[in-house]
């Protein structure tokens, strides 16, 4: 039955498709494939269809689905795994490429500095997104907000150093280890 030996099928095995995850999801109304259907696709071994969904990039990881699941399925975790798979396979939905780039850039940033360096994040995101779709408007978008945000101490030229780099390194190491 469970020929799919990936960790994903073990994660979703207990789901009985009650839909409580979809019912509680604040983004479900905007989704092309709702959380319970993503889990169903994973159960049915159709992970690729799930990785092409827009909805995996709409998920804000609020964890309501995981919290309320009567079968204790970590739905938010499943969606996280689907995002990772999607990025790896290059199956990110057309409309969601910038979201995927942002997520990757964000993680790389944290990995490098131990905490967020805002200016670098913005720079890296815009560059990478530009290389993908050559959109000039994106390069310029929100640029005028920068001085305002700096004034309010929301954006820093040079990021402050993380207090304990090792902790962040350990988290990344552990995630790499536990990859499904």
């Amino acid at each position: 039955m469970h020929s799919d030996s990936s960790g994903l099928s073990a994660l979703v095995n207990d789901c009985y498709q009650c839909g409580k995850c979809t019912a509680g999801c604040p983004l479900a109304a905007q989704m092309d494939i709702v959380p319970s259907q993503l889990v169903r696709l994973a159960q049915a071994g159709q992970v690729e269809r799930a990785t092409r969904a827009e909805s995996i990039w709409l998920c804000v990881s609020c964890q309501t689905c995981t919290t309320r699941c009567p079968q204790s399925v970590d739905v938010a975790g499943v969606i996280d795994a689907l995002r990772e798979q999607s990025a790896q396979d290059g199956t990110v939905a057309k409309t969601q490429r910038r979201t995927a780039i942002f997520q990757q850039v964000f993680l790389d940033n944290i990995r490098r500095h131990g905490r967020l360096n805002e200016l670098e994040l913005v720079g890296a995101f815009k560059t990478q997104a530009f290389l993908k779709d050559l959109s000039i408007p994106l390069l310029m978008k929100d640029a005028l907000l920068a001085p305002q945000m700096m004034k309010r101490d929301k954006l820093h030229f040079a990021g402050k150093p993380a207090r304990d780099r090792q902790v962040v390194d350990r988290i990344f190491a552990k995630c790499a280890e536990a990859k499904v």
Binding site: G19, K20, T22, V34, S36
Partner: peptide, 12 residues
């Protein structure tokens, strides 16, 4: 009441 219609794949 926030529920789901899993047959239609939509929240209700």
């Amino acid at each position: 009441v926030r529920g789901a219609d899993t047959l239609a794949g939509t929240p209700v």
